[in-house]
Write a protein that binds this DNA or RNA. Structure first.
Lengths: 346, 346
DNA sequence: CTGTTAGCGCCTTCAA
DNA sequence: TTGAAGGCGCTAACAG
């Protein structure tokens, strides 16, 4: 007579197919289903077949949250980047995402917009997913972010630049070195009056480092002290770079070449020069940074610094996967390097 | 003497601060902490203060998985796009992400690379998060994807293009209409021999629709049948577009203007024309699609179709948030429109 | 306004 | 090789 389940309260569940359903249909215990699906554990071929058939029949999709909760870590790696539109970061993301996905990991993408405080906020939120690891751009973070990241015991990867005191793994390149080398190449080509054009020196720390490399190269070559540095306080856009043409025209005597902190600025300036009839490189030589695909399409083609962005993403992801599967890395620091590409704009 | 907890088995937990810890420290029940933090429920100011203080002191970060599991839906909305490098999609993502984040929702970004099967795979995986909704690009999906999406009972948003039979909400614009209008504008300007340049007509269905609009405009204006259509079977790049210069040179008599399926192609071709000394628009007029920021930087500036990308993202996100909070939409279809921008390249 | 209780769906632990 | 039990951390449902 107690046939009816007279539980007082009941929650209705998601209504979706669960592992229990699969277990029932295939005549095994839920845990066996779990083992079959995870693939890593023992299961008899018979059980395996039955389970797989049931999975297919029911259209079962494992609940990632339940799995994550039970196994402490969610199968998701957050990646924090300072910008999304910038092809630099989308390439990194694509590289990482692809590798992660092959290993059953999703990617949570956070856009910090070059804001240290937004980075902190995103870090906090993302840690709420109990990720097995986290990737973050650059090596300069707020103290709170640093504390958060070091208090949790998961691998942290800092991307893009070589960091002095990495929080964990570090994959990147030396932006000061690249700035130095590019400037040196310009000097070798005979340019002496080289200006530097960049944006947001207080937020885009990598641009700042490129500038420092630029200044050091000037000094090492006995050229005038700090060079000619122009920073704007807005994000880099093609439009913004056009403004520099005015500055150039007012300072023709002092500027023979410009090293731009990134290709967007360089291309924007190049276009403006075309518009105003300033010959490139005849009157003004222009160099960029990143080697975006547009760099080799513009006319004249742009001298720039090639950065292996996609590879940075895959390399970082593969190091992480290695660590997560218990292996030890040869070194927690990986220098992806860069390459100066000389083209017709200088 | 039974002081030691002699449970047979024990799991070690994540070791992180939990809601229970916060509850203990602030002298209330866990559920009260939950209520305070969710903000939506009643809680006395006293309780609220105590809880917030404890949260700060312990550095508590709520476990999103546990919360999601308990409340059926994870606070995360997947967005599927066909490409990440393309500023078109990063703008949409940024718009959506920003709006979602303000409402406590994260974004899972999936890159389908214009592959229907990859889209299906990603859809399946993402549904494993029990998201409260899902956003997907375009209206053409595999049958399995359609089944998956309609079997779950969450709002589905199809983005970018106006769809015939939407799966749910639809935010976009008419690509055929835009192609038609742009072509008409070119014809009004006096161009008659207009070619169309695009890529991957079997995967990039929106490019195909623009082409169809182009052909219809030709016909409606009594111009020759199908026009001059060139499709390449690779993703659009600046480099790829350069190849069309050869085709132009071989067909000078038949081509006076080119309508490119996107700005990347248009800019790539424009650059190549500069390189080869083909006057734009003097010898060849060029029009693009999307109005990327580079479009108004190139020289001559590019005639193109402006698409409100960021707004598409925010609009879609806000419609979703509305639905999720129980409101009903005026209409499940929202046309964001487009605008023909005439510049110097035509 | 606050607490108790009972799961959400899966996986770890122990036992067979 | 398989299963039973219990818990991961949180919130819905109900009761005070």
């Amino acid at each position: 007579m107690t046939e009816t389940p007279q539980k007082k309260r009941k929650r209705r569940g998601s209504g979706r197919v669960t592992m229990k359903d699969v277990a029932k249909l295939s005549g095994v215990a839920p845990i066996t289903v779990s083992r079959v699906l995870s693939g890593s554990d023992y299961a008899s071929p018979a059980a395996r077949d039955a389970v797989m058939a049931a999975v297919r029949e029911l259209g079962y999709v494992p609940n990632r949250m339940a799995g994550g909760l039970a196994s402490v870590h969610a199968p998701v790696v957050p990646i924090l980047v300072p910008a999304l539109r910038n092809a630099v970061f989308s390439d990194i993301i694509m590289g990482a995402q692809e590798h992660f996905f092959e290993h059953g990991l999703e990617t949570l993408i956070g856009n910090t917009l070059y804001s240290i405080s937004k980075e902190e906020h995103l870090t906090r939120t993302f840690l709420g997913w109990s990720p097995p690891a986290i990737m973050i751009t650059g090596g300069t973070h707020s103290q709170a972010t640093r504390d958060l990241l070091s208090s949790i015991e998961i691998p942290v990867i800092e991307l893009m630049e070589l960091v002095e005191k990495p929080l964990g793994i570090n994959v990147g390149l030396s932006h000061a070195g690249a700035g130095y080398d590019m400037t040196s190449v310009l000097i070798e080509r005979g340019y002496e009056d080289i200006a530097f054009l960049g944006t947001m020196p207080d937020r885009d720390l990598r641009a700042l480092k490129r500038m420092e490399g630029y200044q050091k190269a000037l000094r090492d070559n006995g050229l005038r002290g700090d060079g000619f540095v122009q920073f704007y306080d807005q994000p880099s856009t093609f439009q913004l770079a056009a403004q520099f043409a005015d500055i150039y025209l007012e300072n023709r005597a002092k500027i023979r070449a410009v090293f731009c902190a990134n290709d967007v600025l360089a291309v924007g300036l190049l276009m403006e020069c075309q518009r105003r009839g300033i010959a490139v490189p005849g009157e003004l030589a222009i160099a960029g940074f990143n080697d975006l695909s547009i760099a080799e399409s513009v006319h004249p083609r742009l001298t720039t610094v090639h950065v292996p962005r996609y590879e940075m993403g895959t390399k970082a992801a593969s190091m992480l996967v290695e660590v997560l599967s218990g292996e030890t890395l040869e070194s927690p620091i990986y220098n992806v390097g860069y390459e100066i590409i000389e083209r017709e704009s200088t």
